[in-house]
Design a protein around this nucleic acid. Structure first.
Lengths: 345, 345
DNA sequence: AATTAGCACTCGTTAAAAGTGAGTGCTAAC
DNA sequence: GTTAGCACTCACTTTTAACGAGTGCTAATT
């Protein structure tokens, strides 16, 4: 167990290092107004803290920096849930002043906002398709056998695909089929949609003896497309990475930026972990080599108790956890409220 | 005018520098099999080439590197339109083996292909909306006054927007209005669509005395949205930038990557210049400070003689122009063929 | 017993000095 | 016109020295 003085020193070291990115020496600390004891005393305490693995020195004659364990301790025990400043609270309220009807744009907007708010890079994992339920389906026949299928989910998400049929689908046939499909399929989870859709078309065909073989084949191909399986990831403030002194070296910067561009890898990484509402992973805790020098703050967003996706903040291990956590919590609130507005019960 | 020997030497210097990124010395050149004269002779010729501004030395005791003028001369006079290798030609053919129905995805796919082919970063500017013409318009009323409007252009581009009305629009009203709108508005350039759409709705209202004020207001807001004005830009192979030795320094890399993330700036930069089908700009010719160390190869793509957008390749000034130009030309062909397939006359 | 002042020591950082080598320009010989 | 030879330049590397922030330990102080 740590003494109060040790806690004070540890917090001071982490705070200072987060601010300056420079190893913190005993003399520097002793000059702080909240430190009443001498640098020698601090050195003794530091030796103890180092023995406990909470801090470390880059080399013999340097000050101390927090270890991963130190950051972990700081995050777990030393963070004070600071309320954001009044002007920020005001800004946050006005952020969503005019509603954004489409979830896609709402999510993109949110990613940008969060990165502006924190000056870190932001990742927003969109809702997984599979979990969502169908609200409405529309078939729009165009010229030359082209058919656009529009799909609206209960969360208000709209999506379209274009099919190419060998022969035209009449507007009347499309209309009849559509009416039937909407009657029977509303509420179907998208994960089952493909199977049930084909089944339903087959049944419709036998009842009405209409020629929809081509349609079902084309639909099958388009719905099979794995593009749909994976939720989209939106990024905000990528350039913020450049401002971090730890990423002035291309060798450090490259793996992070490369990972960020890879949808698949990111998806695996961000994929839901529903234990906590807010999850912070530090350095090697990320279990991703490219992120061994980064910390990630994740928050799951949900509507009506259903978890939809993830908001994440990515920065150096030396990131401002306090600010990051508070910003993400506050933005999460506003974001969920907007999402709620867009959903179709 | 340059002598044959000077041309040989200039080409050798540029080729060598493109390959190695190291200043080329007279001794190195004299060892090439196609060089029969001595290093001293080469030094004399180099002095002349330098006087003409075609090459320069980073410092007194270094080899020579091409100047911007040198690259310009190389691009204008020394490039041989090399046909791509058989295996690449084959690969190119199979690239679009299965058609991509949606232009958006086709464009994205193309950006990725081009960057894979060249190992440079690729930009693809999508078609400008304004120039395109309406093919079909669909209104889909959902629950709670939500209406999805789907818009299909003659190029086969599909787009949707969600409107929020204060009170529900009946399916019948929507259907009637839609039929009318499609009759009168097909072929309208998107640039005029907003005005003509509102006009048409107003007229429809007076004729049928239907309550569509809300609809036109909501439509107005949504169509006003400047998001639509600007074509999308797709990026491929961003990570390729990291491989270039000239961008190992964050100070050099940063402005380029930052620019690439800025849709607006890129849009202005890539905006059509219809003089040539292929345009190459080198370093300062880009007129963009962030690209002063880059070269850009641009190609305009068109369907049925109508220019739609731009394919671009971005790399260091020392980029492999030969390969870049040839790749972009070949991919352009295939890309346009696919686009043609997707258009609705 | 806890705290602090003092001091030798460590080690990264910076600056200057010396050595190395690739490459040039010039001159004289071919 | 071409080439061999040679002095010269200058980035790059290595070496050495000086510097200073910071530490650990010990002895004195509270």
């Amino acid at each position: 167990m740590l003494t109060d003085r040790q806690l004070l020193i540890l917090r001071a070291i982490v705070d200072d290092y987060i601010k300056t990115a420079q190893p913190v020496g005993s003399r520097t600390l002793s000059k702080r107004s909240d430190v009443t004891f001498s640098s020698a005393t601090i050195r003794n305490e530091m030796a103890d803290l180092e023995e406990m693995g909470l801090i470390e020195k880059p080399h013999t004659s340097a000050g101390r920096i927090p270890s991963e364990l130190g950051y972990r301790f700081y995050v777990d025990h030393l963070i004070r849930p600071e309320s954001i400043s009044p002007q920020e609270a005001k800004a946050l309220k006005s952020l969503f002043a005019h509603s954004v009807n489409e979830n896609d744009r709402l999510i993109r907007h949110t990613a940008d906002l969060l990165s502006e708010l924190t000056h870190y890079t932001t990742l927003v994992l969109g809702p997984k398709e599979e979990g969502q339920r169908l609200h409405h389906l529309e078939l729009i026949p165009l010229a030359e056998g082209r058919v656009v299928i529009v799909l609206v989910t209960e969360t208000g998400h709209v999506e379209h695909k274009t099919l190419q049929l060998a022969e035209a689908l009449s507007r009347e046939a499309a209309s009849r089929l559509m009416q039937r499909l909407n009657q029977t399929l509303r509420g179907t989870p998208l994960s089952q949609l493909r199977v049930r859709l084909l089944e339903e078309i087959r049944r419709f065909r036998s009842e009405h003896s209409e020629q929809t073989t081509l349609l079902s084949k084309a639909l099958d191909i388009v719905l099979m497309d794995q593009d749909n399986e994976r939720p989209l990831i939106y990024l905000g403030g990528k350039a913020n990475m450049f401002d971090q002194p730890e990423f002035q070296d291309v060798a450090k910067l490259r793996p992070v930026l490369e990972l960020i561009e890879q949808q698949e890898a990111l998806f695996d990484f961000l994929s839901p972990n529903l234990d906590n509402q807010i999850l912070i992973t530090i350095g090697s805790e990320n279990n991703v080599d490219a992120l061994k020098d980064c910390s990630v703050i994740r928050a799951h967003y949900s509507v009506d108790g259903i978890s939809l996706g993830t908001l994440a903040l990515i920065g150096p291990k030396r990131m401002d956890y306090n600010r990051g956590i508070n910003s993400i919590i506050h933005l999460l609130q506003a974001f969920q409220t907007e999402l709620r507005k867009n959903s179709l019960d």
